[in-house]
Every structure is written in structure tokens, then in C-alpha cells.
Design a binder for these strands. Structure first.
Length: 1047
RNA sequence: GGGCGCUUAGCUCAGUUGGCUAGAGCGUCGCUUUUACACAGCGAAUGUCGUCGGUUCGAAUCCGGCAGCGCCCACCA
């Protein structure tokens, strides 16, 4: 049976069938037993789980192509390779898209539904997009172990999240804190700092006057004015001011010391305090180049509840915190605003209640204007944080949140034992992350100190993970390090419905009056236990363990233990246990309504996908995994947290190498994003160029750069995007298809009588095998060092330039008879397909089968003695075939040098042919003068010329003279005379140009060699080289002059 | 404001420890379709390597200044 290949490669006709073949063979599936029982080296990659918010775009296509290249390569190279697929629930992002859709479709808001009903809607969305994403990845050919597909909110992952939370909670690393968070009033949720986008907006500085109040404590002041002026961009927050601050270095500070101001509208009396944070205005010694100093008045209104810096000032000066906003960012007295303000405040105060923050801003400014307390308004362009989802300005908002203490020393830590060169406790989550860094990638003081310590301190080396985390490209290690040297605690609660519910139940229990509260270092005190015992009608621990012998819990109380009447208690349950939860509810406990930050479950991904917290074979085999490939913007959000958690929970790294791929931008250099609408669906590209074409092009673009531009064309008729950048990969695929098609047409044929045919490797054979050996070597080196572009480019050059343009063209006339050439060609194609398979899996797999039919032994019988050492055992499926071993001994510098000379001669002859407009099909006659040393070999070159230049060699040797009327093609000392092309003027012209070129290079060389410093100081071999070149160039120039004269 | 990266042919980009006349793909021009492949072949044109200065026998490459672009972090008086 022979397989007829079409003249053109049509991916759509091939890819689905190949995919089915892989599926039938379960070719993507990996078994941990291969490692644990049979000793195969493990190679695991966990996919960065795409968000289920939307379909994948080109950035995902790039990242997943690179991962697939690594996994397929390692699989062929004999590793037990497993690629773990899955998706991320992406809390806020997914909830937001669903809220938008429900609002657009039904005109309903989230709060119009019961929590479970709305979560079901999000679940449906998730199912839809998870299917879309999975289909995209499969269509791309990603060889994920689909049997293992995971989702960050499925039951096994929920179990891991719960366990992780419980352990952190029990170890005192999770705490409840009252903090200012980035509040999104539209979605009513707290955002992480990283979820806030800054936008430049045109705003105003409002200059507000606060009247001074003289108190008994203040001296009869010398201060000239009866008011001070504060500057603010957010006048509405003045309602919550609890102080006005001045810099102690301000010359006016002394005169105001001890004085107060009356806060307009509210009539609250607030102190003037002194704090270094306040920027000095230019006229009082501020930096004239500082924009803030130009706008500053020297007086800063301090609103601890509504500004993060003011919160810090408030802590320093023990100021009251007055929250004047509701969660929707309307002025409200129901969230911590003392009633007495409303007794003494102006009528205006009541009018403001219920107003939106921007409405209130206008009203307050207007009021100040009316009351002649508005000094000035200046336009001011500044950046304002916006929610990355709802795009409304965020509001710093006081709320209760759960935090992970990332810098807190984990028990067992000895005081003062910090990560060298930092303030970070060595045995803390952040300490783990820093110490995990590969020592050569550590920079600055930390790098210097830690390398010193690692040399001397045994303790530092007793951790299996220490010093092994490596970033590629290396520069990203610095991002990672800097982030961890300035750590903050991690806010893990989100006011959302879509996510892992926080497994904590809280109760405010009546405070037992008869027991003294006794503060302790750790854990609840006697009073708390008494309150609990009362609530459950017995000793709490006894009651609990009697009722639920299998359940486990941990108790904590917050730092501020509630009100005088009540104590607050938090109970974290280790496992899901409905009966226990119901019982807690009956005792007055309420489950925390919030869910966990998405990154909490993502941080566990390398663990949870392998079955943690259970002690599974998968974990033993594939954690730590080998490589994480991801985007630079989540180095801190995600990479850091996986490292911290994996070390904390399992005492090993989640992965050793972190490859950071480029960001794909559109033609204008903008990041591809859904909001800009410039994203590209990989399926569109697959539609226009095929999966392999897309994958090859993406790999070829992956250099060490951090951004890649991809100009995109949109087809108005179909709405599909495409880009001619992908022509590169599509054309290459077609080229390979046709090279194999060509080879098959010969290999499938009976050679007939081969007596007298070549049995030795000729120059071209030795040359192409040498190039093949180099290509295998370069491919391995590129893949080892994550140089995807080099990998792709190297194969392009070998297959297209060397194999197709030269070798195949040379062997065409003789291939039918030559078993040597057949064998060499089969070997070259075999190895090429293997090397290409990781990046172009469909095409190569499709061609593998017909190659197996046509050349089952790859010509081994003939080549047995000629090409030793190539190991390419043939198996049915390429994906399961072994990575080729081609010995470096095949690298043949002599053949390469000789062949290169032949190439130059052939190119020179072709140039002359073109210049004289000789029709390609017209055969011409030549003779050639070659130096004696080359005469024998040059016969071979003559044969190559006859094939590749369509000519007949009449005469060849050291003594050949140029016939009259011949044009000359010269390479070094070789001269080819193309007969009967007599056009004296044209030839003069042509040779004159060559002479000019030669003379320029003679001048350059002479200049260089006449420079004494060069001759003395440059490496001798370079000097020698220049000298040789000069001699050769002079001889050639002399020769040319003679030819021109003879014309 | 701090950090990182980029600036090389019309476009998108290579150029790995400094060393022949700076390369590729696309595009352009010419020739070639009973040819494995026109998604092809052969040949050609196109560059003060952003700019100024320094180190060096020698700089696209190393160092410094300047300009422009992009990303990340911090920042709402």
C-alpha cells in the first residue's frame, strides 16, 4: 500500500484524525508508577490554569505551545512526562462577567438572586468556557494528560484548600485584621493591590479652610490667620477628618502647636498634629521640583478611615477612625459615624446623607464656596486607582478582612534569625521564597550575604529546596527578589459569592461577667472558654468531640475581643461536615460570608492537582515539577505564592525552573486584552494557518525579549482574525509535506537493478549528514536552555535550506538508483520529523506513517557500514518514538568546507547566468580552471554544477585557458568560464564592479594591517587571517584586471 | 518616583562571552509553471545598527549621558 499525498498540506484534513489517533493510543497519559516502580525520570509541567472568564487568546496559545514543546520533547527523550491541565475559577473576574451578562439579558442584579441561584449561573458560565478552553487546547494539539483535568473549585481542590486554610489558621498564620482595603463600590468587594489599575484623570485640587479654635491648652497664639487651609482632591472625605497635620519642620508649626480646628459642616473639634509625612510647600522649604510641594499648603487633612497614608498617621497619633461611607460609597452614618456629630453638625450634614461620593463632593465644595471657606480650586491631573473589573475608582475602605501573615516567623524560629541581608524572618513564608532562589540569581546585599552564609552555615543547606529556584530569563529573578524584600501581608478574603467559602464560623458570645479576661500570648483565654461552655451547655471541647468524634477544629479570638458585652470567637473546621456546621449554627455561630482570594487556590495548584493533602503516588512522582511557564505579570501574584505554599506544606519547591514568556502585543504595541478587543482566538489562526503553522511561528518568535508585536488583520466578512506573520509556519509545514511527498515517490519505488550504483557516501551525503548531526546537537542545546526561537530556526535552516534547496536538488537525477542516497534521505527526514515533532506535532505525525511504509528500515541495510551510530528505532506513532541520537562523529568539517566552496561556485555561476539573462532551461557549456590541489575534488563540483546550474562541463583542470567570448565566474582561485556569452561591455561592467568591491576590502585589510597596534595586540590567528585574505584579494584583483584588459 | 526591557532593511524580528563585507521571514523588483512544493525555485535591491560621548588594535555588541516607546511596582493632600 502506498499513501498518496496531496500536493498541498491541508491541516484541516489531517489534524482531527491525528488527534483521534493519539487519543486512541492514550498517548498523553502518564503513570506515576513508571517513575516510582520503573525508575523513569519524571518530568512534570502544571499548566497555568486559564481563567474560565473567556476563551483563550494568543498569549495562552504561545504559553501552551511552549509547554507542549517541552513536554513532547521530554516524553520522546525518555522521561515520564506529565502535563497537568485545568482551569481557574477566577473569582472576581468570572463573577463580574456573569453579573454583566445577567444585567444585560434580564435586567437583574446579583442581589436580586439567592446566593445559591446566582452561583449556579456562574457555574453554568464556567462549564461553557471550560469546555471552550479545553477544546482550544486540544485543537492546538496540547498533549495534556486530560484524564487528570482539574478545576480550582472542584471537590479535590476544595479539599486541599480547606486543609491548607486549616493548617495556616492553626499555625497562627491567618488572622482577622481591620484594614483599609481597595474597595470597589460597584462590585462591593475588596481588591488586591494588583487588581487595581491606575488611570490618569483630570481632577482638581480643592483648597478648604478650617477655622482655628483656641483651646485652653494653647498659648495666646501669634498665628496670623483665623483658619488654616488644606488641599484635597477628595473633599467628601473631610467628613471623616480626625486631625490636621503639619510638618514639624514647617516654620509655622510652633505657633500652632496645641491648637485645634473646627471641622466645617460637622463642627467636630480636631487637633493639629505634627508628622514628617506632610509635604512642605515650596515657600516653606519644600522641593520646588516636587509637584506635591507646588500644590501643598503644608496642612494635611487626616482621614484615617478613607486614606491609606492617613490610616498610618492615625496609628502613629492614636487618632479616632470615623467611617462616613457605606459599602456603595454613599455618605452614610450607619458604618461607624458617632451620633454626636449629628447633634452638633450643620443642617447640611443631614442633607449629605445618602448622597453618592461624587454627588457629595459637589455639594460639599458648593457649601464651602457659599460659606466663603473655599480658598481656591486648581486643575490637577493625577492617577487614580480603578477596579480592574468594574473600572470605577476604588475607595480606600475600612473593613474586616482575613490575612495571611507572610512575614511572621513560623514556630520553631529563633529570634533574630533573618534571611541574610533582609528584615525577613528566615522561617517565614516570605523567607522561604527568598531562600528558594538560585544563589547565582540573587542580587544586591541579599545575594552577597546569602552566598556567604550558604558557604558556611550548615543549617542553610539542610533544606532540599534551598537555592534551587531558577528564572529564565534570569532578569526576572530580580522582580521576585525585590517583591519579597518588601513584603506585605496577603489579604485573602473577597466579598464575593463565587469562590471557596472561608471555613470559619464566628460568634459573638455573651461575655461572662464573673470571670476576669486574662490576656495570653496565644489562644483564647479563660473568659472565652467560659463563654463557649455556656453557649454549648457543657465543656466545649468535650461536647464537640463527643458529638463529632471525627471532626477537627481550631479556635481563635481576634486581637480586639469584641465589645464589653460580648466576646468574639472564630472556629475553623478542618473538613466539610454538615452536621457539625448545623450544630455550630444552632449555638450562635455564623459562617463567614466571604470567599477566598482566587490566588489562594491557585497557590496550591501544583499540590492540589496531584492529590494533596493525601499522600499520593502522583505527588511522589511529580512534585516538585520541572518547569513552570508563565507570564511576568503574575510572578508575584502566583509564582511567589506557589513557592511559599509548596515549601510550607510539603517542604519542597513546586517547580525548579520558571520560564517567563514574552507578552504578545498588537500591532501598536498594546497589550492584548478583552477590554481593548484586540485579542486573537487561536482557533482563528488555526483556521487560516493550521495548528502547526501557528505553533511553529509562535515558537520562532520566542526569543529572550519581553514583548512581541503581532499585527493582526480582521476579516470583516467572517469576523475572524488572522495575521500574515503565521505564513512563516504555514509555508514551512507545506515545504516539509512536499519534501516528504517527494521522497516517498522515490522510496516507494522498486529501484530495479542497482548493480554499479554508488555504495559509498559522496560529498553531498557526508555534508548533509554532518549538517544533520549539528542540527541534532543544536536542537538539544536550544531546548535545554529554553531557546525556542533557536530551536525553530535551526530546523528551518536545516530542512529548507540544506536538505531541500541543496541535498534534494543534488540527488534528484540519481536518487532512483542510489540506495545510499535513498538511505541518507530517509534518515534525514526521519530525524527531522522527530526533532520537529514537539513544535509541529500534527504534520510530523501525519508524515510518519507513510515514511514507515516507504522506508521501514530507513535504508539501514545500505547505510549500515556508512553511517554508524545513528539511533532511530522506528515505532508506530511518532509521539511515542525516541528522541534521535546522532553521534557528533558525523560532524565532518572537511566535507562542510568542501561543500561550502561548491556552493559558492554554483552561486557565482548562477549569478552570471542571471546577469546574462540565460533562460533557465537553456543548457550552456563551461570550462573551469582550478588549482591542482582541488582538481580531483573539483570533478565532483563539476557534477554538482551540471545538476544545479543546468550546464555541461567541457574541460576542467589547472591549465584550462579562458576561451574567447566566455564570461567568468570566479571564487578564490577557481574560475568558471561560461562559453559564448560574449557581451564585452556588460562583462566589463560586471567585472569592474567586482573589482571595486575587491579594492574596498583590500583597502580595509591594508588599513588594519598597517596599524601596528592591531598586529601587536589582536589575536595572532586573526592577524594571520587578515594577511591571507589580503594576499588572496590582491591576486584576484590582479586576475580581474587582466580579464578586463583582455576584453 | 523605583525597577525592567526595547530602539538594527518598508514591516516583524535575530545577531550568546567585542573580531571577515550586519542576517532571517514577510514585502519589493527581475526571471522561471508538462518541475516534490508558486504556501515554490533562482537571482537582485534596500541599513550613518535611535543619538552624543567614552573604553579598545577593533563596538550593533561593553560603559556613561540624552531622546522616544513599552511593561511592572509605588503613588489619590
Amino acid at each position: 500500500m502506498t499513501t498518496e499525498l496531496a500536493a498541498r498540506y491541508t491541516p484541516a484534513d489531517v489534524e482531527p484524525a491525528i488527534l483521534a489517533r493519539w487519543n486512541d493510543a492514550r498517548a498523553f497519559h502518564a503513570d506515576p508508577a513508571d517513575t516510582l516502580e520503573h525508575g523513569r525520570k519524571p518530568y512534570a509541567v502544571v499548566i497555568p490554569p486559564p481563567n474560565v472568564t473567556a476563551a483563550l487568546h494568543m498569549g495562552h496559545a504561545l504559553n501552551n505551545t511552549l509547554q507542549d514543546i517541552l513536554v513532547r520533547w521530554r516524553r520522546m527523550a525518555g522521561y515520564n512526562a506529565m502535563w497537568m491541565p485545568g482551569t481557574d475559577h477566577a473569582g472576581i473576574a468570572t463573577q463580574t462577567v456573569v453579573e454583566k451578562r445577567v444585567l444585560a439579558q434580564d435586567g437583574k442584579r446579583r442581589t436580586d438572586f439567592a446566593r445559591e441561584d446566582f452561583v449556579a449561573k456562574i457555574q453554568a458560565w464556567k462549564d461553557e468556557y471550560e469546555a471552550t478552553i479545553t477544546n482550544q487546547l486540544k485543537t492546538m494539539g496540547c498533549s495534556c494528560d486530560w484524564d487528570r483535568q482539574a478545576f480550582t473549585m472542584d471537590p479535590p481542590r476544595a479539599k486541599a484548600v480547606r486543609e491548607a486554610f486549616f493548617r495556616l489558621f492553626k499555625d497562627g498564620l491567618i488572622y482577622r485584621g481591620k484594614r483599609l482595603v481597595n474597595w470597589d463600590p460597584a462590585t462591593q468587594t475588596a481588591l488586591a493591590d494588583d487588581e487595581v489599575e491606575n488611570q490618569e484623570i483630570d481632577g482638581h485640587f480643592y483648597y478648604l479652610r478650617y477655622p482655628l479654635v483656641k483651646t485652653t491648652a494653647s498659648p495666646a497664639s501669634a498665628y496670623a490667620e483665623s483658619y488654616i487651609t488644606v488641599a484635597t482632591t477628595r473633599p467628601e472625605t473631610m467628613l471623616g477628618d480626625t486631625a490636621v497635620a503639619i510638618n514639624p519642620r514647617d516654620p509655622r508649626a510652633a505657633a500652632l502647636r496645641g491648637m485645634s480646628v473646627r471641622l466645617p459642616i460637622v463642627n467636630r473639634i480636631i487637633p493639629i498634629i505634627e508628622d514628617d509625612y506632610v509635604v512642605l510647600p515650596v515657600e516653606y522649604g519644600g522641593d520646588p521640583l516636587d509637584t506635591k510641594a507646588q500644590f501643598a499648603t503644608g496642612f494635611l487633612k487626616v482621614t484615617p478611615a478613607h486614606d491609606t497614608n492617613d490610616w498610618d498617621i492615625g496609628l502613629r497619633h492614636h487618632l479616632p477612625v470615623i467611617n462616613v461611607l457605606s459599602p456603595t460609597a454613599a455618605i452614610s452614618k450607619d458604618h461607624g459615624w458617632p451620633e454626636e456629630d449629628f447633634a452638633q453638625g450643620d443642617d447640611e450634614l443631614r442633607n449629605l446623607l445618602g448622597m453618592d461620593r461624587f454627588e457629595a463632593r459637589k455639594a460639599i465644595v458648593e457649601w464651602f464656596r457659599r460659606e466663603k471657606l473655599l480658598a481656591e480650586v486648581k486643575p490637577y491631573r493625577h492617577s487614580v486607582g480603578h477596579s480592574y473589573r468594574s473600572h470605577v475608582p476604588i475607595e480606600p475602605y475600612l473593613s474586616d478582612q482575613w490575612y495571611v501573615a507572610t512575614t511572621k516567623a513560623i514556630h520553631g524560629h529563633r529570634a533574630g534569625e533573618n534571611v541574610p541581608g533582609t528584615e525577613v524572618a528566615a522561617e517565614s513564608l516570605v523567607g522561604f521564597a527568598l531562600r528558594a532562589m538560585e544563589p547565582t540569581q540573587r542580587g544586591g546585599e541579599y545575594g552577597a550575604r546569602s552566598r556567604e552564609v550558604m558557604k558556611t552555615d550548615e543549617v542553610q543547606r539542610n533544606r532540599p529546596w534551598e537555592g534551587r529556584l531558577r528564572f529564565i530569563p534570569e532578569r526576572y529573578a530580580r522582580n521576585f527578589q525585590t517583591w519579597h524584600e518588601n513584603p506585605r501581608d496577603w489579604c485573602i478574603s473577597r466579598q464575593l459569592w463565587w469562590g471557596h467559602r472561608i471555613p470559619v464560623w464566628a460568634a459573638d458570645l455573651p461575655r461572662p461577667a464573673d470571670i476576669e479576661p486574662k490576656p495570653t500570648d496565644r489562644g483564647p483565654d479563660a473568659q472565652v472558654y467560659a463563654a463557649l461552655d455556656t453557649a454549648v451547655g457543657g465543656k466545649f471541647s468535650a461536647v464537640f468531640s463527643q458529638k463529632f468524634p471525627a471532626a477537627q477544629y481550631h479556635l481563635t479570638v481576634p486581637d480586639q475581643q469584641g465589645s464589653p458585652d460580648h466576646v468574639r470567637v472564630y472556629i475553623c473546621l478542618r473538613h466539610e461536615h454538615q452536621a457539625c456546621e448545623a450544630w455550630l449554627k444552632s449555638c450562635g455561630f455564623v459562617q463567614d460570608p466571604d470567599v477566598l482570594d482566587t490566588w489562594f487556590s491557585s497557590a496550591l495548584w501544583p499540590l492540589s492537582t496531584l492529590g494533596w493533602p493525601d499522600d499520593t503516588a502522583e505527588l511522589a512522582a511529580w512534585n516538585p515539577s520541572a518547569t513552570l511557564s508563565t507570564a511576568r505579570e503574575i510572578i508575584t501574584l502566583w509564582v511567589s505564592r506557589m513557592v511559599m505554599f509548596n515549601i510550607y506544606f510539603r517542604d519542597c519547591l513546586p517547580f525548579r525552573d520558571v520560564f517567563i514568556h514574552a507578552m504578545i502585543q498588537d500591532g501598536e504595541g498594546r497589550k492584548m486584552s478583552k477590554s481593548l478587543g484586540n485579542g486573537v482566538d487561536p482557533l482563528d489562526i488555526i483556521h487560516s494557518h493550521g495548528s502547526d503553522g501557528m505553533r511553529y511561528t509562535l515558537a520562532q518568535m520566542t526569543t529572550q525579549t519581553q514583548d512581541v508585536r503581532l499585527p493582526v488583520l480582521r476579516d470583516a466578512a467572517t469576523g475572524r482574525n488572522t495575521s500574515d506573520r503565521f505564513d512563516l509556519g504555514r509555508n514551512f509545514a507545506n515545504k516539509i509535506w512536499n519534501a516528504v511527498r517527494f521522497a516517498l515517490s522515490y522510496l516507494n519505488e522498486d529501484p530495479g537493478d542497482t548493480t554499479g550504483a554508488d555504495t559509498e557516501l559522496a560529498l553531498a551525503d557526508r555534508w548533509i549528514l554532518s549538517r544533520l548531526a549539528r542540527t541534532v546537537h543544536d536542537t538539544d542545546a536550544s531546548l535545554e536552555s529554553f531557546e525556542f526561537s533557536g530551536y525553530a530556526q535551526g530546523l528551518y535552516d536545516f530542512i529548507w535550506r540544506d536538505l531541500c534547496d541543496w541535498y534534494i536538488e543534488i540527488v534528484k537525477p540519481t536518487l532512483r538508483q542510489s540506495m545510499v542516497q535513498r538511505g541518507v534521505l530517509a534518515v534525514c527526514l526521519d530525524v527531522s520529523l522527530r526533532l520537529l515533532h514537539p513544535v509541529m506535532p500534527f504534520l510530523t505525525e501525519a508524515l510518519w506513517e507513510p515514511l514507515n511504509w516507504a522506508a521501514p528500515d530507513r535504508g539501514a541495510g545500505v547505510l549500515g557500514k556508512g553511517v554508524p551510530g545513528i539511533q532511530i528505532p522506528v515505532s508506530k506513532l511518532l509521539i511515542r518514538s525516541v528522541w534521535p541520537i546522532v553521534p557528533a562523529t558525523l560532524i565532518d568539517p572537511e566535507a562542510e568546507g568542501e561543500f561550502a566552496l561548491a556552493q559558492q561556485v554554483i552561486t557565482a555561476v548562477r549569478q552570471v547566468r542571471t546577469q546574462y539573462k540565460v533562460p533557465p532551461r537553456q543548457q550552456i557549456e563551461v570550462s573551469a580552471k582550478v588549482p591542482p590541489a582541488l582538481a580531483q575534488k573539483a570533478i565532483m563540483r563539476g557534477l554538482l554544477m551540471e545538476t544545479l546550474c543546468n550546464l555541461t562541463v567541457r574541460d576542467l583542470g589547472p591549465k584550462v585557458e579562458k576561451p574567447a567570448g566566455a564570461a567568468v565566474a570566479a571564487v578564490g582561485q577557481i574560475e568558471i568560464y561560461l562559453h559564448n556569452l560574449i557581451q564585452a561591455d556588460a562583462e566589463k561592467d560586471r567585472l569592474g564592479k567586482k573589482l571595486d568591491e575587491l579594492q574596498r576590502s583590500i583597502a580595509t585589510l591594508e588599513g588594519r594591517l598597517s596599524n601596528a597596534s592591531y598586529v601587536d595586540r589582536a589575536p595572532p590567528h586573526l592577524v594571520k587571517q587578515s594577511q591571507d585574505q589580503l594576499v588572496a584579494a590582491k591576486a584576484e584583483a590582479e586576475n580581474l584586471r587582466g580579464q578586463i584588459a583582455a576584453l
